[in-house]
């Protein structure tokens, strides 16, 4: 145990969750029960678990959108509790929402991508530049003046990713990023995400997607995270004829 402590002291986790418990108001059963997690720099973690098991809740707690009933969340080595502390955290952790329509609220793509940088205090010209760079990085050149609600589902997802990346986060929380995407867009998303020099956690039901992107995988049982075997993850219920692994 002593060895373990010295070992983890070398690389302090980016996120350390200790005994986190959360009960939705009006419910008796906790969604998260004494959940623990150490998440280190450079890690790419997948979380695959049934609906309603508390995956999104975990993300919301990490971002300070929900308040835990007990337990502590330490991010970048400091415990975070108050809204003020979370405001600082949000500049460094980006979260991609399940529904892109929730994320893209500006009329045009450029405005939406520039929204984060402007809030961080960048000048309009600078914010525009960052927004353009981020869009180009994701292969979305020429999307600047497109109207957000007229984008296709796949385009919306990529632009949403751009809005998060434009804030230059160190960690990404991705909530079912491949949901509802066709194979081509999914491949594009996989390419872009694996090229990023970032740590991230992905919630997904998509075996292939996690297989490509996550180094380790968790499932959730009784409100806790449990490691999954790699082999286990890549179990397929459908026959493969079109592609190799």
């Amino acid at each position: 145990m002593a060895a373990l402590t010295t070992d983890s002291a070398k690389t302090d986790p980016l996120i350390r969750i200790t005994d986190l418990t959360f009960i939705y108001p009006g419910s008796v059963k906790p969604v998260l029960r004494q959940l623990n997690l150490d998440f280190h720099q450079g890690e790419r973690v997948g979380i695959m678990a049934p609906n309603g098991s508390g995956k999104t809740t975990l993300f919301y707690l990490l971002m300070g959108l929900l308040k835990p009933d007990s337990g502590t969340i330490e991010i970048f080595g400091k415990p975070v509790r108050s809204e003020k502390e979370f405001e600082n955290i949000r500049k460094r952790i980006g979260m991609l929402f399940q529904d892109s329509d929730d994320q893209l609220f500006s009329p045009t793509v450029l405005e939406d991508v520039a929204f984060g940088p402007l809030n961080l205090g960048k000048k309009p010209a600078e914010a525009k530049l960052i927004a353009r760079d981020t869009l180009n990085q994701l292969g979305l050149e020429g999307f600047e003046n497109r109207v957000t609600h007229k984008l296709s589902g796949g385009e919306k997802r990529l632009v949403s990713l751009a809005t998060v990346l434009a804030m230059e986060p160190e960690v990404l929380l991705l909530d079912e990023p491949s949901n509802g995407l066709d194979e081509e867009t999914k491949t594009r998303l996989i390419t872009h995400l694996s090229d990023l020099d970032l740590s991230y956690m992905i919630i997904s039901h998509d075996h292939d997607f996690l297989y490509e992107l996550a180094q380790s995988n968790y499932t959730m049982k009784n409100g806790q995270l449990e490691p999954m075997e790699r082999m286990h993850i890549h179990y397929h219920s459908h026959p493969h004829t079109s592609h190799r692994h």
Binding site: Y60, M63, L65, E87, R90, K91, G94, M95, F97, D99, D102, Q103, F105, F115, G116, N119, L120, T163, V164, M167
Partner: peptide, 11 residues
């Protein structure tokens, strides 16, 4: 949810 997404981006 939109409000939450906006807050996460520093709104």
């Amino acid at each position: 949810r939109v409000n939450q997404a906006m807050r996460l981006r520093g709104f």
